[in-house]
Design a protein around this nucleic acid. Structure first.
Length: 517
DNA sequence: GTGAATGAAAT
DNA sequence: ATTTCATTCAC
């Protein structure tokens, strides 16, 4: 029986993380950290684990090699495709009994502490994941790059989800996401309920510095999300019909896109409130690509909602009851006032580029100018950790993808491709983050037009493309700048960014094209 | 209360 | 094939 992470070779030279952890903080865990850094609840003897991991100096590089349990023996003949997704980890239940004991009681809210999760599978943390997994050869997810996804990327995600705008991840979700892979391996199981539980247990154990880093990333994510989707407003569905959201929409929802509500009763007074519709319409892509007067890279290009939520998101000063209809081109307008919701295109962007502020968290730069560095940023090796203070030898133009292969950034937008929508360029989306984001596979493939998209959107997609092309004439500053700053640039609204005027202006020479290995 | 991610497990 | 689950946080 081989350990899941047997190939994870702990490197003694990689102890940079702990060095950056305050001493007292480290010791906070050491009394309990009997070398393993983990415990289990009843039913699993610690002696089932490798003594090799009892070296206190290393906490746990990897979870100890699990011994075979009886269940494993019974299924010994069964081939397993890989070492992952296994169920015979030390934390796996030794009996095939269902994870959930289905209670006849009406379903209780999550508030109810009565967890259905089999805690026996859950390792008990004695240190936060950042410590426990610090030496694992599993890259942390590049959250810095993730939260700095360009507006175009975000819009593509929306398209991919058939127009659905997802919520920005909060700090914990980012944290969980960052450590998910490590956690899975550390726990020796792929069960995300476990991963969630472990993450949840680890989160409060993390140092304030770590948590603050994720808080900062969450703020950035919110800012960029808001900039990419200016009209977005979280409006949770009241109907308890747990929609199994997979980026798809129920017929009900789909219908709401291209139909106008005869009563103008856009969202309410229904017995059951229509599930929230956070779709935004690509119809409007040609509108005002970069019209924002206060943000150089985030505009209103797609941020107009031809949906009830769009109206809900309209300023409260509206006197007319919000309503929406669509003309022959699919442009939403108010049937009462016959006014279009969308402004005419204003290509004022070129006057607007103020700056990309590259402020804060040096954490984002990956250049390690402060104690906050690395964290799996493209410029870091996959063994870098959140607080890697080791000096960087790489230029910002070179990094490594999640598998240790270098990623080269080269000219991206220049003349030949100038009129091609940037996001249609094959390499456009290549970065380390997306290699870790399975749901970003789409970004490396041609966009679907009519098949996976609401039919009513297919026509609009042509507009979308045309608009994108037009927008490209104004350069894709966001992404250029993003690439130029290696994806760690913060994008601030100048109104909230005190030093915007001091920030360097975007320059074409700062651009890089990304090429994988 | 909902939904942000996620994928095994349950239905 | 679809839904549930487990977590924290922000609506």
């Amino acid at each position: 029986m081989t350990s899941v992470s047997a190939n994870s070779e702990p490197s003694p030279s990689r102890d940079f993380y702990l060095d950056s952890v305050p001493r007292d903080y480290r010791q906070q865990y050491q009394p309990e950290a009997k070398g393993l850094g983990l415990y289990q609840n009843e039913g699993y003897a610690p002696d089932g684990y490798m003594p090799a991991y009892q070296d206190e100096a290393h906490y746990v590089h990897n979870p100890p090699t699990p011994r075979s349990n009886t269940d494993d023996g019974m299924r010994a003949g069964r081939a397993r495709s890989n070492t992952r997704g296994r169920t015979d980890s030390p934390f796996a239940s030794s009996s095939p009994k269902s994870r959930v004991s289905h209670s006849p009681m009406p379903r209780r809210g999550r508030k109810d502490k009565k967890s259905k999760l089999d805690k026996s599978k859950m390792p008990k943390l004695t240190a936060p994941l950042s410590v426990l997994t610090k030496d694992m050869d599993v890259a942390l997810r590049d959250i810095g790059a993730w939260v700095n996804r360009s507006r175009e990327e975000r819009h593509q995600e929306v398209l991919k989800r058939n127009g659905y705008v997802t919520r920005p991840m909060n700090s914990f979700m980012l944290y969980r996401s960052a450590y998910a892979e490590r956690t899975k391996q550390w726990c020796l199981q792929n069960n995300h309920q476990i991963v969630s539980s472990v993450s949840g247990a680890s989160w409060p154990m993390e140092s304030p510095e770590v948590r603050e880093q994720f808080n900062e990333w969450a703020r950035i994510e919110r800012t960029n999300h808001s900039a990419a989707h200016p009209q977005y407003k979280f409006s949770p569905s009241k109907s308890s019909s747990k929609r199994g959201r997979k980026g798809e929409f129920s017929d009900d929802e789909a219908a709401s896109l291209d139909m106008e509500d005869p009563d103008g009763d856009y969202a309410g007074s229904r017995v059951k409130r229509r599930p929230r519709d956070n779709r935004e319409s690509p119809y409007l892509s040609h509108n005002d690509p970069f019209a924002s007067t206060h943000h150089p890279y985030y505009g209103n290009q797609f941020g107009v909602y031809a949906s009830p939520e769009y109206q809900q998101a309209m300023p409260a000063s509206r006197t007319q009851p919000p309503n929406v209809a669509y003309d022959q081109y699919g442009h939403p307008y108010d049937p009462h006032t016959h006014r279009y919701y969308v402004q005419q295109p204003q290509y004022t962007y070129s006057h607007d580029q103020q700056a990309v502020r590259v402020p804060t968290p040096a954490s984002m730069t990956g250049t390690g100018s402060t104690s906050l560095g690395g964290f799996g940023m493209p410029g870091s090796s996959n063994t870098d950790d959140l607080f890697n203070t080791s000096p960087r030898t790489q230029t910002p133009m070179q990094g490594f993808n999640g598998y240790g292969r270098p990623v080269y950034f080269a000219q991206q937008h220049q003349q030949p491709s100038e009129h091609v929508p940037a996001f249609h360029q094959p390499q456009y989306h290549q970065n380390a983050t997306q290699r870790h984001a399975s749901h970003h596979q789409y970004s490396q493939q041609p966009l679907q037009t009519s098949q996976t998209v609401d039919p009513s959107l297919s026509v609009a997609f042509a507009d979308f493309q045309a608009a994108a092309e037009a927008a490209t004439n104004h350069k894709n500053h966001f992404d250029n700048a993003l690439g130029g700053s290696f994806g760690h640039t913060d994008y601030y609204d100048q109104h909230t960014s005190p030093n915007t005027s001091l920030a360097p202006h975007w320059s074409p020479t700062d651009e890089f094209k990304k090429t994988e290995f």
